[in-house]
């Protein structure tokens, strides 16, 4: 299975990964609409962490032993057989936040109003992830 690899020494903290991820997972797929016209506003599923000169982009690792999946009581969190990605079926999610409680990297976010998991990397459902594709300095690679 292909994974997103993080190379912090190349990350320049530009956050293009966050922007591209947000737009990719918006309803319109358009940057201006995604930022200004959609309610709830889509969230990026990758997070850039920054401290001094150090930065890196972090998204779900699709762990082999995925605690979010093990601890999901509804079965909403599942592993896609083809990509091996851990995905969330929003129809089944009840917003109990067991996944948020379980993720050791803190990369799952919630949609407070609709009580659904709002932000969880889906590896762009099989395509090369847009965070990787749009990284200007190869700080994220997919292999």
């Amino acid at each position: 299975m292909k994974k997103i690899h993080i190379h912090e020494e190349y990350c320049i903290g530009c956050r293009l990964c966050e922007i591209n991820c947000l737009v990719k997972h918006s309803r319109s797929g358009k940057i201006v609409k995604a930022f200004r016209g959609e309610e709830p506003r889509p969230l990026p599923r990758v997070r850039v962490e920054e401290e001094g000169y150090l930065s890196f982009a972090l998204q779900c690792r699709h762990c082999d032993e995925a605690l979010c999946l093990e601890n999901c009581p509804t079965g909403a969190m599942y592993r896609d057989e083809e990509t091996q990605a851990v995905l969330c079926d929003e129809n089944k999610c009840v917003g109990c936040w067991m996944c948020i409680m379980s993720c050791p990297l803190g990369v799952i976010k919630r949609e407070e109003k609709t009580k659904k998991v709002a932000s969880k990397c889906d590896l762009c459902r099989g395509e090369t992830p847009v965070c990787v594709k749009n990284c200007p300095n190869e700080a994220l690679t997919y292999e």
């Binding site: 994974k3 997103i4 690899h5 993080i6 190379h7 997070r47 962490e49 920054e50 401290e51 150090l54 930065s55 890196f56 972090l58 690792r61 699709h62 762990c63 082999d64 050791p104 990297l105 803190g106």
Partner: peptide
């Protein structure tokens, strides 16, 4: 966030799922 954790430990955590 993860960036606040000791580098060694952070890398170990993220590597857990085969990441460098």
């Amino acid at each position: 966030g993860m960036i606040s954790l000791p580098a060694e430990y952070r890398k170990h955590l993220v590597e857990g799922a085969s990441i460098e």
